[in-house]
Structure formats: C-alpha cells, structure tokens
Design a protein around this nucleic acid. Structure first.
Length: 776
DNA sequence: CAGCTATGCGCC
DNA sequence: AAAGGGCGCATAGCTG
C-alpha cells in the first residue's frame, strides 16, 4: 500500500510555498517518485549527496540515542539557561503529522539531533535505537518546570510549539522567535526563511549555496535514516541561535537607540506573548456545519448553473456578430462556447464585438466590477452575477469542506502572526479573515461547538482612535479631546468644518439636551442634513487614512472632484490636526526612513527618500563617437548640468509631455527613471501604516490579555479567529454572561492602556457565525 | 507538467 | 490627470 500516504490537504502547492518561506522541510509526498526511481534509489541518492556535501561536518553534530546523554544535554541547557529547538516532522500540519525528531543546541555542546519516530523505508516500522518519545518529552518538560524557565530560541515557533505540544510537552514555549525578530527588524526583508536570514546576517552572504529542500522533497523526514538526516537537521538549531543572537544585539532593552528599545518592547510585550495565542487558536479551530454546507452547495450550484445558462441565452442574441468576428479573426482567443470566467474573452466580446467603451482611460479593456456595473448591458450584468456566485461556490462553499480536519470536524486555519508589513496578522489555508459577511449564508457554515455559543467583539472606531492617539503624541489633542468628551468624531469634524453646531451634524435627531429622539418603533430618527455633513467629514477622514485621492472621494460622495477638494479644505481648516498628521508622518518617513505605530513598531518606507527622477546611461556609459576608443574611462554618471536641464524640462509635466522629455533624453542615450509612482505609493502608505499598524498592536495586545485571563480560561472561553479589529471566540453556553462581560472589559482595557481614552467594544452572541443574535 | 503573472474579488 | 491602505486565493493564460 501507499508508503507515503499523506493526509489530504486543501492545496498542496500552498503547503510547499509556506514550507519554503518558513524553511520547513517539504515533505509533501507525491504519488509518483520523480525520475521514476524507487524510494530506495531516492533515499540512497539522499544518503550519498548528504555524505558528499556534509560529510566534513560529521564531527560537528551528534545524534542522541541515549537517555543519559540527553539528560546531560538538558542539564547543560538549564545551567546555560539557554537552548534552541527545531523540530523535524513528516508533514506540515501539527495536528495530522508526526514528530520525526528534535534538534537542539546550547552553548558548549554540539548541535544535536534526537530521532524519535524514524521508520524504515522498507518495512515501514519504527527503527530501533531511538529514544522513546515519552522519555524525550520528560526531559524537555524539565525546561518549563517552575523556577527553571529556560530561554528558548526557535524559528517560526508556532509550528514547533504545536508539534511539541502534541508530542507530549504540553507547556512547550519559546522566548525568542527568529522569524518574528526578523520581521520587526525589517518587515521588507525579501527572504524570511532561516537559512537565508542566517546567511545574510551571520555569514555576510558568503554561506554555502547548497540547498537541501529539493533533495528531501517527496520523502517524509521520518523515512530518512537518522544517521544521514542528523547532518542536515542538527545544523538548524545552531544557526537559529546565531540568528537570534544577532537580532538581540539590535532588539535590546539597553540599546542606546530609542527606536530599538521600543522595538524590543514590541517583541517582548506583543509578538512573543502572541505566539501562544496563535498556537491556541490554530489548535482550537472552528466547528464547521457540514449539513448546512450540503444545503448551500445544492442551492448555490443551481444558481450558478442557471447563470451560465442565462449567459449562453444572452449570447444567442449576438450570435451573428460573434460569428462574423470569429471568421474575420481566425486566430482569435475565443473558446466555443465563450468562457464567461475569462476576462480576456469577455473583453473581446464587449470591446471588439459589441464595440462598447469601458469609460476608464486607465484600463480601456478592463472587465472589473467597477467598469461592468456602469454598463447597461445584459452581458455585463450576467458576468457580474456569475462572478459573484462563482466566487462564493469556488472559494468558499465548495472549498471549505476540504479544509476540515477529519478527527474533530473543525477547520484549523493557519495564522501568520506578521502576515502584513504593517504588523497585522493574516490567515490562510483557508483564509478565515475574508469569509463573506455581506451574504449572510456563508458565515453560518461556521458554528459554535456543542454546548457553546460564538461570541464576537469588535473595537468601535479603532482606527480613528489610533489617529487621535498618534496626533496627541505629536502635541495635537484636538481629536483626543473629542473622544474624551464622548463625542462622535465625524460629527465634530463636520461641525468645525462647516461652521454648524454639533447637533446639526449628527446622524440622528436629538433634543436640546442631546438625547436621541425615537419614532414609534423605538428607532432613532434620521436627520438627513446632519447625516450628509457627517458622511462628508467621515469620507475625508477615512480618505486621508487610506491616502485616497479627491477624485475618488468625489465619486464616493457623488459630487465633483472640485467639490470634494473644497470639502477637504474645509475639513483641514476646521480640524488642522488631520492635515498636520499627514505632514508629520511624511516628515518622519522622509527624515528617518520609517514611520512608527503607537507602540513603536516600525514601517520602513525607503521609497519615500527616492529622487523623483534618476538619470542613468541607457547603455551603462555615454554613447561614444569613436567605437574603437577603449582607453578613455566611461563616465558612469550623467553630468549634473544635463540632469538639471531635464529636471527643469520635467517640472510640472505629466502624461504625454512627460513622455516627450523622456524620448528626447533617450535619443542621447540617457534613461530617465520615473520614481513618481513609487513615491506616491509610499506617501499613502506612510499615513496608513501608522494607523493600520497601531490598530494591529491593539488587537494583538487584546488577544494576549484575553488568552491569558485566568478567569476566562476557567470559564472555558477560547479565542478562535481575529479579524483585524474584532475577535471571534466561543464559550460554554452557561457562562455566556460572565464571558461576554469579561470579553468586552478585557479588550477595552487593553486598548485603553495604550490609547489613554475610552474604547468601547460591542459583543454579539450567536450560535452560527453572523447568525441570529442570542439574548441573555 | 509545474510555476509564474495578471486579473478579479472576498474581508477589515 | 489621476491617485485605495493591508491581505489570500481562484481562474486564465503564458512559459519553459
């Protein structure tokens, strides 16, 4: 039977990608061993290759198969108060795969590999001569005993912690994760895997280029003879140590640099404590309702089918035109029938056959939602409807069941703790942070465990409050004061911008004392003029936070760009804090090369320091009249006066006149690099990163508090999914009241501690995610 | 065939 | 003149 049966995963490609980036061995087993060779051949190849390339290191590393040797090693670790750990497994899912062995290192010892579950590639049975897993785990347990909590370095700790937990060390932990350290030190790092980081920072980029990932590909590590594998495996904890030590030279509470002391604070108080939270959430997973999914798949596949039929019916109306086009263009890219899912084919249909205009200069052949929804055309409508449905079916309804863990019926996604350069988390396999919320059906596939209820809580106005706190730090407490007085920020901005009273800028009617007025149904009464003023102010503020342009804001507010500009100017006049924040952030990025969040997390924006134009010789050197003149030194720099000349010509130009100047320069061999786009991007990012990053700080801090709250733990409360400004959790039904109160309180307090202003959190309790609200 | 980019779209 | 920040993932379509 299949020797390398590996649990079915949603997407093997993704596993491989993630393994690559996290530097875990790719052990996704293919059904066919490549090159047609047998497993035996493959393993023999691995043996000889490792022997040949790493044989010289034979004495640098050891295999531990003796309990006394292991005990002694752990003794040393405890004495050193230090160990680095890396695990090898037969797959990438800690819930489904097994520990192969553990790699450890501490100073004064050799890098060591402790094989635990290696199996024979011939008999498929556990190989003799390995220590029993329980005995090994007992030794590791000594590291976490009260009074002897030893510092532990890892790389991508959440993986190893979860593997070790399931192998029996329930208290597995990590005090320094090189992956998180690397992100804090440079979120723009191109390669965030252990070997490349180590090579770059510890070996000056001069490290061995030999890579083993491809070598081991297709063979589970458990099947590699450990007397071969250790040469490869035992190297990792050593370089983990070196990398982490390098990072600690920078991320240090005693650094003479203020920015680094703050970054250390983030490492110690946010990122490292967050690791356990992520481990818990991934282990928890969320229950998936397969019965409901089956209902949905029937319902939506039917709708999808109908839409495809509808499309083909519509096409019949244009049959003549399409036939003519096919004949006139024998090499056309149209399938028969036309593929509704192909943007290329839809573009041909709309623009070449029907001769429509996209109305968008930037993408004249675009078929995006924005363009199609403006067309009054049955094809455009059908395409949009089809996309909506196919998205739901292909990405969610019919895909999610593949992600269910067969052992517990739950979906355990993966969280990338530093998924975004701003510090936000991301989620994948599957992504649980982009489950549709507009459509109420989809989220309901996710349900509470039996006897539990789902509980979600979100920060209200998290980002504007971050903005207010950042402005206050810079000496402007205009927004901070607004929040401290419990006022609605958007209404207050509108009031100042449009010279109206606060009451005149509220969404709903109030009496003279500021109390809401209600209609006969007990609903607040909308105040149209106030609502409009508030909406305008809100658009401007959020537009600033996202770096949005005036044209785009005008579109949103259904007014002209000119009008949008005027509104923006009024807002800036009435609330100078907003404009000041923009300017301060830009100055900060320009001078320092980075911006910071409320907690001191950095976002480096090197592009902001670029010159708008760069001048280089197109062929590496100025054109030479005498091609045989090899003696004269080529002048690498374009002469300053030439640069000045073109800069002057370029001043204030755009579009075609800009291109004209480029062409002119090109004629004399000068290549002008236009960095305008990059600078514009960085300009938008620099404002947004501070806000988004600060919000991420708060959410992470809140999650840590929630997860560490002893009371909540005892009440059976558990975090399931963070969605940027909100958390989804569950708790036993009988503890709803206590849990929801503690949830809101704990979250608020965590954020208030940083922002120093009142933060409200709204809790919703349901059986299904986004289902009917339950009252208690 | 795998692996890549482009396009498009779900969420906050 | 126009200008949306941050993600993950599906399909199409190209390339080696």
């Amino acid at each position: 039977m299949a020797l390398f049966e590996v649990p079915k995963r949603a997407n093997r490609l993704i596993d491989a990608k993630i393994a690559k980036s996290a530097n875990k061995k790719v052990t996704v087993a293919p059904t066919i061993v490549r090159g047609g060779g047998s497993i035996l051949d493959k393993i023999n190849l691995i043996k000889s290759t490792v022997e040949k390339n790493l044989g010289q290191y034979k004495d640098e590393y050891i295999v531990i198969t003796d309990i006394d040797v292991l005990t002694d090693y752990i003794d040393h670790a405890i004495k050193n108060n230090y160990i680095s750990i890396d695990t090898e497994t037969d797959g990438l899912d800690p819930l489904l795969n097994n520990l192969a062995g553990i790699c450890i290192y501490t100073h004064g010892q050799k890098g060591a590999y402790i094989p635990v579950n290696h199996i024979s590639y011939i008999t498929n049975e556990r190989v003799d001569g390995q220590l029993a897993q329980a005995d090994v785990m007992r030794q590791f347990q000594r590291l976490s005993e009260p009074g002897s909590v030893v510092d532990i370095d890892m790389f991508n700790a959440k993986f190893d912690i979860r593997v070790l937990r399931h192998a029996g060390w329930k208290d597995a932990y990590c005090t320094w994760d090189g992956y998180l350290g690397a992100n804090l030190l440079n979120e723009n790092e191109e390669h965030k895997n252990l070997k490349q980081l180590h090579n770059k920072y510890c070996l000056n980029g001069q490290g061995d280029a030999f890579r083993f990932d491809d070598l081991f590909k297709g063979i589970p590590f458990t099947m590699i003879p450990f007397n071969t594998g250790y040469l490869y495996a035992a190297h990792d904890p050593v370089i983990t140590t070196e990398l982490c030590e390098y990072q600690r030279k920078w991320l240090n509470p005693n650094s003479d640099r203020e920015d680094m002391r703050k970054l250390f604070w983030v490492m110690e108080n946010i990122e490292m404590p967050c690791v356990q939270v992520v481990c818990d959430m991934e282990d928890n997973g969320i229950l998936f309702d397969m019965n409901y999914q089956e209902e949905l798949t029937v319902k939506y596949n039917k709708l999808l089918e109908d839409e495809v039929k509808e499309f083909s019916d519509i096409l019949k109306m244009y049959d003549k035109e399409i036939t003519i086009y096919r004949k006139a263009n024998p090499n056309n890219k149209l399938d028969d029938p036309i593929n509704i899912a192909s943007p290329t084919q839809i573009a041909i249909l709309l623009y070449d056959i029907l001769g429509l205009d996209s109305g968008d200069k930037k993408s004249p052949r675009g078929t995006g939602e924005e363009i199609l929804s403006k067309m009054d055309n049955p094809i455009a409508k059908a395409v949009l409807k089809y996309r909506e449905l196919s998205k739901l079916v292909n990405t969610y309804i019919d895909k999610l069941p593949n992600c269910i863990n067969p052992n517990d019926g739950r979906i355990h996604c993966s969280f990338n703790q530093y998924g975004a350069k701003t510090g936000r988390m991301s989620s994948s396999e599957p992504n649980l942070q982009n489950i549709p919320s507009h459509n109420k059906d989809i989220r309901k596939m996710f349900v509470a465990s039996d006897g539990y209820v789902l509980m979600s809580s979100d920060f209200s106005q998290q980002e504007p409050k971050c903005l207010a706190a950042l402005c206050r730090k810079q000496g402007d407490s205009q927004m901070y004061d607004t929040f401290m007085r419990g006022k609605d920020l958007y209404s207050e901005i509108a009031s100042k911008a449009f010279n109206q009273t606060y009451r005149e800028c509220l969404e709903f009617m109030t009496d003279e004392d500021g109390n809401w007025l209600y209609d006969e149904h007990g609903e607040r009464i909308t105040y149209k003029a106030g609502k409009e003023r508030r909406t305008q102010a809100k658009s401007i503020l959020l537009g600033v936070l996202y770096g949005r342009g005036e044209a785009s804001i005008g579109e949103q507010l259904k007014c002209t760009t000119k009008k949008a500009h005027e509104i923006k100017e009024s807002v800036f006049r009435g609330f100078p804090a907003i404009k000041q924040f923009e300017q301060d952030s830009l100055d900060m990025a320009y001078e320092l090369g980075y911006v910071t969040t409320v907690c001191g997390r950095k976002r480096r924006l090197p592009d902001l320091q670029l010159d708008e134009f760069e001048f280089i010789w197109r062929d590496g050197a100025p054109p030479q009249d005498d091609l045989l003149d090899f003696d004269s030194e080529p002048d690498a720099e374009v002469p300053i006066d030439k640069q000045k000349y073109y800069l002057k010509r370029l001043k204030g130009t755009w579009g075609s006149s800009k291109r004209k100047v480029f062409d002119e320069a090109n004629k004399e061999g000068i290549w002008i690099v236009d960095n305008g786009g990059k600078i514009a991007d960085a300009t938008r990012q620099c404002v947004n990163s501070r806000i988004q990053g600060s919000a991420a700080d708060l959410t992470k801090l809140a999650m840590i508090e929630l997860n560490n709250n002893q009371e909540l733990k005892e009440l059976g409360f558990r975090l399931l999914i963070p969605v940027h400004d909100e958390v989804i959790a569950e708790c036993p039904i009988e503890n709803v009241k206590e849990c929801s109160k503690l949830l809101a309180e704990t979250m608020s307090k965590a954020a208030e501690k940083i922002l120093e202003m009142p933060i409200k959190c709204d809790v919703e309790i349901t059986r299904e995610w986004y289902g009917e609200e339950l009252k208690f």
